[in-house]
C-alpha cells in the first residue's frame, strides 16, 4: 500500500476506534444515570420501579411533616391531590421547603412503598412551580375532573 494511504488508513481506523469507545462509554454512562420522573398517582399505582433511582414530585401535604426528635430525619407526604406517597429524608431541607409547596425529590422507592430521598429540591422562587409538579397536578386534576388552576400555573418573576 502507498505510504500516504497507509498513514491515512491508520488515522481513520484510529479515529473510528476512538469514536466507538466514546459512544459505548457515553451510552453506558447514560443508561446508568437517567432518572425518570414519577408522580404520586403513578407511584401509588405501582408503576414506578422499586430500588431504582428516580425522581418524584408533588406538593408537600399540609400537616404531614414529622420530624425525628434526635436526628435530622424527616417524614412527609407528597401529593398530587389524588394520591399521596410517604417520603423519608435525612438531612437539611431547602429554604423554600414548606407544607403546601411543590418539591421534587431524588431517591429510591423501597419495598414498603416508601420513597427514601437522598435529595429534596424546592425551587429558588416562592412563586415558582417545578414544571414536573405542575404537569403532575394538572394530570391529576384532569383525571378528577376538577380544576385547580391558579395554583398550578408555573409563574415567572
Amino acid at each position: 500500500m502507498h505510504p500516504i494511504r497507509k498513514k491515512r488508513l491508520t488515522i481513520v481506523l484510529f479515529l473510528l476506534a476512538g469514536l466507538s469507545v466514546a459512544v459505548a462509554l457515553t451510552t453506558y454512562a447514560l443508561r446508568q444515570n437517567i432518572n425518570l420522573f414519577y408522580d404520586p398517582t403513578q407511584i401509588s399505582a405501582g408503576e414506578a420501579p422499586v430500588d431504582v433511582r428516580i425522581r418524584a414530585g408533588g406538593m408537600v401535604k399540609e400537616g404531614s411533616v414529622i420530624r425525628d426528635p434526635d436526628s435530622l430525619k424527616v417524614e412527609f407526604l407528597v401529593t398530587d391531590y389524588s394520591a399521596s406517597v410517604p417520603v423519608e429524608y435525612v438531612g437539611i431541607l431547602p429554604d423554600l421547603f414548606a407544607e403546601g409547596q411543590g418539591i421534587v425529590a431524588m431517591g429510591r422507592l423501597n419495598t414498603e412503598g416508601r420513597f427514601v430521598a437522598d435529595q429534596v429540591l424546592a425551587k429558588h422562587d416562592e412563586n415558582y412551580m417545578p414544571p414536573e409538579v405542575a404537569g403532575a397536578l394538572e394530570k391529576a386534576s384532569k383525571a378528577e375532573g376538577k380544576s385547580v388552576t391558579g395554583s398550578v400555573k408555573p409563574a415567572s418573576y
Partner: peptide, 14 residues
C-alpha cells in the same frame, strides 16, 4: 417522550 433528568454521575464519569 418522558421527563428525565441526567444526574451528576453521568458527567463526572465521562
Amino acid at each position: 417522550l418522558g421527563k428525565i433528568s441526567i444526574g451528576e454521575p453521568f458527567f463526572n464519569l465521562t
